[in-house]
Design a protein around this nucleic acid. Structure first.
Length: 241
DNA sequence: GCGACAG
DNA sequence: ATCTTGTCGC
C-alpha cells in the first residue's frame, strides 16, 4: 500500500516572492485553520525545528518522531537546503517551512500530532509557522514558542503548570502563557491546526518531563541545532546523511 | 511618525 | 537563529 503522499508545497509554490504576497497568502490560509480538537488516538507524535549552518547560508530542518506513550524516539529525519530568504518577523514560515516539509517527507511516517517551534494562531494574521504547517499538511499541530510575537497577558504564577491566557488587542484569546517548570521563563502555546485553545497547553504539559521544552520540541531542537554532536559524549553518534 | 518584532 | 567560556544559582 502506498501512503497518500502529500503535495505540501502547493501554497508556497504559488508565492510570487514578495512580502506583500506572503502576507496575503497568510490571511487567506488563516481561514482554513481548524480550532477544534480533531485528532485521533495519539500513538506517534513529532517535534520539528530549524537550525542554520554556514552562518545562515544553509537551512537545516529536523523532525523527530516519538512514541507518545514512552516518549522513546522512533525515527528522525534531516533536510538541508539553501536558505531562501532572511528572517522577517511575521513571515517565519516562508523562510523555514520548505525545509520542514522536506524533512517531514523523508521521515516516511505520518505523525498523529506535530509540535512546532514558533507560534500557531498567535500571529498578526493568525497564521504562524505551526498553523501554516498544519494547514498545508492537514495534520494536527501545536505552536511552542519561547517569546511573544503579539498579544498581552496578566501576571503568571511561578509554579509548574500555571497558565494565563494570551490576548490580542481586541481581548480575544489567541494562546496560553504556560509555566512548564518551576521558576523558568514561560512558554507561549497556541494551536496550529485541529487542536483547541484549551487542549493545546494540556498536550504540551503531557509531554514535558524534566526540561522546559516538551520532549518532541526539545529533541528536534537538539538535532536541528546540532547540540547533540557538540556536547561531550564518549561515543559520537552515527552519521546522518 | 515611533516602537515592536516567533526564529 | 547564530557567534561563544565560564559561571552563578536551584
Amino acid at each position: 500500500m502506498t501512503e497518500p503522499r502529500s503535495q505540501p508545497r502547493a501554497d508556497l509554490q504559488r508565492w510570487d516572492g514578495s512580502t506583500a504576497d506572503a502576507r496575503a497568502i497568510q490571511t487567506q490560509l488563516a481561514d482554513k485553520v481548524v480550532l477544534a480538537d480533531e485528532f485521533g488516538p495519539l500513538k506517534r507524535i513529532a517535534g520539528v525545528d530549524v537550525g542554520f549552518e554556514d552562518g545562515g547560508m544553509i537551512t537545516r530542518a529536523a523532525v523527530v518522531l516519538l512514541d507518545a506513550e514512552t516518549l522513546e524516539p522512533l525515527a528522525q529525519a534531516l533536510a538541508r537546503i539553501p536558505t531562501c530568504m532572511p528572517y522577517i518577523p511575521g513571515l517565519l514560515s516562508f523562510r523555514e517551512l520548505p525545509a520542514v516539509l522536506q524533512a517531514l517527507d523523508s521521515l516516511g511516517q505520518t505523525p498523529d500530532l506535530i509540535f512546532s517551534d514558533g507560534h500557531g494562531i498567535a500571529h498578526p494574521r493568525g497564521l504562524g509557522i505551526a498553523a501554516h504547517l498544519g494547514v498545508v499538511t492537514g495534520l494536527p499541530t501545536i505552536g511552542v514558542a519561547k517569546k511573544i510575537l503579539i498579544g498581552k497577558h496578566t501576571a503568571l504564577g511561578e509554579q509548574r503548570g500555571e497558565q494565563v491566557d494570551l490576548l490580542d488587542k481586541g481581548g480575544k484569546v489567541i494562546g496560553t502563557v504556560l509555566r512548564s517548570k518551576d521558576r523558568v521563563r514561560p512558554l507561549i502555546i497556541s494551536p496550529g491546526n485541529r487542536v483547541s485553545l484549551e487542549t493545546a497547553p494540556q498536550l504540551v504539559m503531557r509531554y514535558v518531563t524534566r526540561y522546559r521544552l516538551p520532549e518532541p520540541t526539545r529533541l528536534a531542537d537538539r538535532l536541528a541545532s546540532r547540540r547533540d554532536e557538540k556536547r561531550g559524549g564518549p561515543q559520537q553518534s552515527m552519521e546522518l546523511q
